[in-house]
């Protein structure tokens, strides 16, 4: 068995041909494999999310994390990029879709790619994972506590985020949703509305709302970390991708 992986920074051409920094991790073995596009949370392209990318590679996937804030300047630290992107109102939806399309295309150019693509996103990236899956041909999407898929953001909300429920009919793949019961963005009620809408549309999906967990329960370096929810969540992610991203 060859369980070695390669991980490091690559450059890809994103939406409107913008050069994006991206973190790629892939197995060194020669088995055919699916690809996973990881969408970072609002605090940006951080080491915690890069660790998630390596975890996918260690489990047999080629995974890529495009730095959605690359346009804030090369050589700028990720936290400064995140603050600048936030001050500008965040990442426009159209740009996000273009960046995910480019990241998925890059994965499909790699040796041993089987052509299957999963997306996963956390926090604001959870909403963006759903957006990508409603806008592009994806094979399996995971939404980790993404808010504003159903509800309007609060009035003072500075980001250009609009609800996505009207796009649900275009969902191109099965969706796995992982949420915390104590979260308010999205709260269990908002998750329930999405669940009902996908039922109505006959879209394959599987939602889990974990007790004793709030927002960001996968974040191992934050007080929000909830081991029970995160351990079960990871198990469900790999089971889900195992079913939908094999050739």
């Amino acid at each position: 068995m060859n369980d070695a992986i390669w991980a490091g920074t690559v450059a890809i051409s994103g939406h409107a041909d913008a050069e994006l920094e991206a973190y790629l991790a892939r197995p060194l073995g020669d088995q055919a494999r699916g690809g996973v596009v990881v969408i970072h949370h609002m605090p940006g392209y951080d080491t915690g999310t890069q660790e998630i990318v390596r975890r996918f590679a260690a489990n047999g996937y080629a995974a890529i994390l495009p730095n959605l804030y690359s346009r804030e300047g090369a050589g700028v630290s990720p936290d400064d990029q995140a603050a600048a992107a936030r001050a500008k109102g965040g990442v426009p939806d159209e740009q996000l879709v273009g960046d995910v399309r480019a990241a998925a295309a890059h994965l499909n150019t790699l040796d041993h790619a089987n052509g299957k693509i999963g997306v996963i996103g956390y926090c604001s990236g959870g909403r963006q994972s759903f957006l990508a899956a409603c806008s592009l041909q994806i094979d399996a999407a995971v939404d980790c506590y993404g808010a504003f898929v159903v509800n309007e953001p609060p009035e003072q909300f500075p980001l250009k985020a609009t609800p996505l429920l009207s796009k649900a009919a275009d969902l191109s793949c099965p969706l796995l949703g992982l949420f915390g019961e104590d979260d308010t963005y999205p709260g269990p009620e908002e998750v329930g509305v999405l669940d009902a809408e996908l039922d109505k549309l006959g879209k394959e999906h599987e939602f889990h709302i974990y007790p004793d967990a709030g927002h960001a329960f996968f974040s191992v370096d934050r007080p929000a970390y909830r081991p029970a929810a995160a351990v079960d969540g990871w198990k469900r992610i790999f089971d889900f991708y195992g079913r939908h991203l094999s050739a």
Partner: peptide
């Protein structure tokens, strides 16, 4: 900019985050 949200570095769930910036000098002017 002042916002109450998850911190980048502080070990708390939420903090009051304040950025003092000069966007004309780029994101690192912070």
């Amino acid at each position: 900019a002042v916002y109450v949200d998850h911190p980048y570095h502080a070990c708390h769930e939420h903090t009051v985050n304040i950025d003092f910036t000069n966007p004309a000098e780029g994101p690192s002017a912070r």
